[in-house]
Amino acid sequence: MSGLVIASVVALGGLGVIFAIGLALANAKLAVHRDPLTQEILELLPGANCGACGLAGCAAYAEALAAGKVPANLCAPGGAELSSQLADILGVEVEDQEGAFAIVHCNRSEAKQSVDYHGIKDCKAALLVRDRIYDCEYACLGLGTCARECPFDAIVMSPEGLPIIIEEKCTACGVCARVCPKDIISVEKSTSFVHIQCCSRDKGGVARKNCRRACIACGRCAKICPVDAIEIKEFLAIIDYEKCISCGKCVGECPTGAIGNYRQMRRRKASVA
């Protein structure tokens, strides 16, 4: 009996020793060399793999940073804090990074739904069989692809089916802007407070018929703008953010309420908080 015990202990123990030696050799021979700098950077990055830096995920950005190929201020989710940390590690200077938010350029909450859609709740899937769900062909489809794809859970869908950006969470990574098949989301600097909340390139009358809050290209905003920052292109007011001083004069002038003043909204939120 005890012979059997000793034999199995010796056999298994011996096997264990042999495997341990094998593993130790393999570890020495096949070791993957990781750059400690890359590793350190990677640990600092948010790990959302959102692609805002223009590279394929955080690991790629960390490698490129370690190799000195890219500037240290490309990570939108990390913001200014991260870029200064990165700059310290890498021993480089970075330009200040401005905050930014995703902005939804549609406010069609009163627009009529023109067709029934019964498929899966995905904007891109809906567009395979429809060019619109609401009367306006430029309108948000409201199926929430942006909210689902947001890596930071910064988008919720309103009861009317419009995306609401939670600016406290938004890191301006731009994933929503990229996935939106109607191109109604863009990322704008947090210092820009005035935004056109419409994307309709329909002629004024058509746009108005489809949606009460549409830009009807009347041009009053362009006229009142003190710095000539608004131009009407393809029946839609476009703000040149380089020129815009966010004075908000156009907001009151717009007959359909198609221009939003985010300064008020942000201030209101701040006072509530």
Partner: peptide
């Protein structure tokens, strides 16, 4: 809606 997903997936 399996085919619906597959069509969207292919696209």
């Amino acid at each position: 809606p399996i085919v619906n997903w597959i069509k969207a997936g292919k696209a």
